[in-house]
Computed example of a mutant assay.
Amino acid sequence: MIQLKKMFSAAVIVAASLLIVGCENNDSPVYTPTTNSTPTITAQSPSSNATNVVLNKVISITFSEAMNSSTINTTTFSLKQGTTSVLGTVGYSGTTATFTPSVALSSGIIYSATISTGAKSTAGISLAVNTTWNFTTGVNAQGLSTVGLGAAGNYVILAKTAINNNPTSTITGDLGLSPAATSYITGLSITNATGYATSAQVTGKIYAADMASPTSTNLTTAVNDMTTAYNDAAGRPSPDFSELGTGNIGGKTLTEGLYKWTNTVTAPTNLIISGSSTDIWIFQIAGDLTVSSGVKITLSGGAQAKNIFWQVAGTVSIGTTAEFKGVILSKTGITLARGAAFTGRALAQTAVILDGNVVTKP
């Protein structure tokens, strides 16, 4: 009996050793758990019973998990006006399905969108029930209007209290600082000229409030316009998406529209912003915005960084080597960690902190 126990123990040790070796060699584990959860709908746009929906609206659904794209089609995702089916195309990316009508919707009409149980997760599990919701169109042909930046749009970086850089960054576009003086711009090894300064790290000019006229006046106008733009973005009513992902937007595909969160938003994994070259995105964030290291924002379908507005009441933190897109309107500060790449505009009502970044105007 003792000998058998020893043999059994030895076998367990050998098996465990083999499993460890396999893991160290990046082999597939012996046991892989599977997910058998039933997929649900976590967001839809337009929302149920929404009114004044624009006539060029792209209908979208966000699922609780990744779906089998082959099951997301015009059979499972449909739009009707009464009993008449609306022609359109269906797309799927990340966890979001979209229905794009072939022609503009009619004004003042009730439409019903349906996603059926034919839609299945990657594990082959269907939605629990068919889901149908209604919305009513308005009279406007277009969706969100852009956020006007005014003179703030002349700068790729604009701040009030400081612009601090840990070399070496590569910046394309002009920088502005007001009401703080030139001494609060650090790490750029600037060379002063009349009314502006230059830097080997900047393809553009650098302006501060203490420089020769008319720089101070121009910056005052730009800073005021930055505040106006922030208030415009923050005050847009009737969001298409509220509390999406309870603030976690990692892995999601974000279609055009107005998004609202009453707390912090995080992006721990890659995400996609999908839409046409004329679509507008406004993200209203009452807390902080935190993008994890290495996270990449990808634009698809023609979406442009200049049409994406991140209105953030708290701080903005872009992680190491992350790739961020869009115009940031921050009521406080913006920090880019080492090696992060940013295509857009960093417009902060306090400071902008850089650390060996690539910053490019949209």
Score class of each variant (00 low, 15 high):
residue 52 N to W: 04
residue 30 V to Y: 08
residue 206 I to K: 05
residue 246 T to N: 15
residue 201 Q to N: 09
residue 130 N to L: 15
residue 82 G to Q: 07
residue 252 K to V: 04
residue 268 P to W: 06
residue 253 T to W: 01
residue 295 V to D: 01
residue 188 L to D: 05
residue 270 N to Y: 01
residue 293 S to H: 12
residue 8 F to V: 15
residue 311 Q to K: 09
residue 182 T to M: 15
residue 65 E to A: 08
residue 288 D to P: 05
residue 140 N to G: 14
residue 103 V to P: 02
residue 328 I to D: 00
residue 345 R to F: 00
residue 219 L to W: 10
residue 63 F to P: 06
residue 56 N to Y: 05
residue 305 A to F: 12
residue 292 S to L: 14
residue 70 S to N: 15
residue 70 S to G: 14
residue 90 V to L: 07
residue 353 I to V: 14
residue 101 P to M: 04
residue 84 T to D: 12
residue 300 S to H: 11
residue 358 V to S: 09
residue 287 G to Q: 06
residue 132 T to P: 08
residue 317 S to Y: 13
residue 172 T to L: 13
residue 112 S to W: 14
residue 71 T to R: 08
residue 115 I to G: 05
residue 169 S to D: 05
residue 30 V to K: 00
residue 198 T to R: 06
residue 122 T to G: 01
residue 223 V to M: 08
residue 40 T to G: 10
residue 214 P to Q: 05
residue 35 T to G: 13
residue 74 T to I: 13
residue 241 F to V: 10
residue 272 I to R: 13
residue 226 M to K: 07
residue 176 G to P: 10
residue 348 A to G: 05
residue 240 D to G: 14
residue 27 D to N: 11
residue 62 T to K: 07
residue 174 D to E: 09
residue 268 P to H: 12
residue 293 S to I: 08
residue 223 V to W: 02
residue 266 T to E: 09
residue 197 A to G: 05
residue 206 I to S: 03
residue 223 V to L: 10
residue 315 T to H: 15
residue 346 A to Y: 04
residue 79 L to D: 00
residue 274 S to K: 13
residue 178 S to N: 03
residue 250 G to S: 14
residue 80 K to F: 10
residue 288 D to Q: 03
residue 268 P to M: 12
residue 86 V to S: 04
residue 87 L to P: 00
residue 290 T to F: 02
residue 40 T to K: 11
residue 202 V to C: 04
residue 76 T to W: 08
residue 266 T to V: 14
residue 88 G to T: 02
residue 98 T to K: 03
residue 280 I to N: 03
residue 60 S to M: 03
residue 60 S to V: 02
residue 112 S to D: 13
residue 252 K to N: 15
residue 80 K to M: 02
residue 291 V to F: 00
residue 141 A to R: 11
residue 246 T to E: 11
residue 249 I to W: 15
residue 305 A to Y: 03
residue 239 P to V: 01
residue 195 G to Y: 13
residue 216 S to D: 03
residue 15 A to R: 01
residue 250 G to D: 05
residue 165 N to A: 14
residue 320 T to E: 11
residue 295 V to L: 01
residue 92 Y to G: 01
residue 94 G to K: 11
residue 15 A to V: 10
residue 341 A to Y: 10
residue 202 V to L: 00
residue 255 T to G: 14
residue 173 G to R: 04
residue 15 A to C: 07
residue 235 G to Q: 04
residue 297 I to R: 01
residue 133 W to Y: 08
